[in-house]
Nucleic acid binder design. Structure first.
Ligand code: SF4
Ligand code: SF4
Lengths: 160, 160
DNA sequence: ATTTGCTCCGATAGTTTTGGTCGGAGACTT
DNA sequence: AAGTCTCCGACCAAAACTATCGGAGCAAAT
């Protein structure tokens, strides 16, 4: 739990790659095909294909099925594609708990009536969502990404 | 993905309940047994039992196996039990990606070498972790929890 | 016009995770 | 000694995730 799925990971990888091609330092705007991305990152081709299809269906990328020169390209500028959008495209609407976006009656959680942790959790949920929404593909676009782990980034003072 | 498991949910529910009993407004310090919590919240008894065992093993609660009057009680004060601790107790160490706490070589992710999204993602991971660590059981302890959804809490300005 | 290389879509296996169950051993109270 | 309780490990079923396959359609190159 609380972990990205492989598909989400692949999606981000692919988007980052496409963004680099189109908007990177050595910008070379062109469409890229599935196989290219897959081989570049050692991702199973067919699975990546389906991920890209899903992204296309959600308007995040555009498919150019133009025979041999077909492929995909970003649908908008990198900064207009937030991580939250990507994640929601890949794995339905995201929610920490079963209860958080329930429209009709209590279809899901049996203990909703007796539940005292719902509000605090939905608050956390909201925070995470905003965090994910505040980052875009552009933020992944740093060339020469250092592989060191950020050991202690400034804690952005969560109010107690 | 990016969702609490039932077990984690049950754990929080149970901890909240125990905290209420011991530290709530009508404080009535006593040990509570598994069945009581389960019936109170309509949780399968045996599953909750295992969750509680796990929590006990991680020192978050104390087991008092004293025959008929046995049960569990919090091991520390509610404010000293953070959500991150609970989650890690229930589902191993939490990490958004497969790559984030790898000690030895690249056991997991095959595309780690070509990966340009690792650093940004680990930053997000870190933010979420700190968020989870900044909330404790005490924060779940509000009596009469309002069921309204918090619409817009302060976004803690992620530095660009 | 035919071939080629691509996207697209649905269906389908294999595997892992999760949710939930069972039964026995140990410990304390009565 | 009997009865309840926790404890612990093993077990099972269902769902989700990962990955694979096969075929249809389309546009450019030949
Ligand atoms: S137990 Fe509470 S927080 Fe968890 S899913 Fe049910 S209503 Fe939501
Ligand atoms: S693709 Fe990159 S971010 Fe994802 S698990 Fe692998 S190394 Fe980590």
């Amino acid at each position: 739990m609380l972990k990205f799925s492989k598909k989400a990971d692949y999606a981000l990888l692919a988007l980052q790659y496409m963004a680099t091609v189109q908007y990177g330092i050595e910008a070379n705007p062109r469409v890229v095909n599935t196989k290219e991305i897959a081989e570049e990152h050692h991702i199973p081709v067919e699975l990546l294909a389906k991920v890209l299809q899903t992204l296309a269906k959600h308007q995040l990328i555009e498919s150019h099925h133009n025979g041999p020169k077909g492929g995909y390209a970003l649908g908008r500028e990198p900064k207009d594609i937030t991580l939250a959008q990507v994640l929601e495209a890949i794995e339905g609407p995201l929610g920490l708990t079963d209860c958080c976006h329930e429209k009709d009656g209590q279809s899901q959680c049996e203990q909703m009536n007796r539940c005292n942790i719902r509000t605090p959790l939905s608050r956390i949920q909201e925070s995470i969502f905003q965090l994910l929404n505040s980052m875009s593909i552009e933020d992944l676009l740093v060339e020469d990404t250092p592989l060191v782990i950020v050991e202690s980034l400034k804690l952005q003072g969560v109010p107690s």
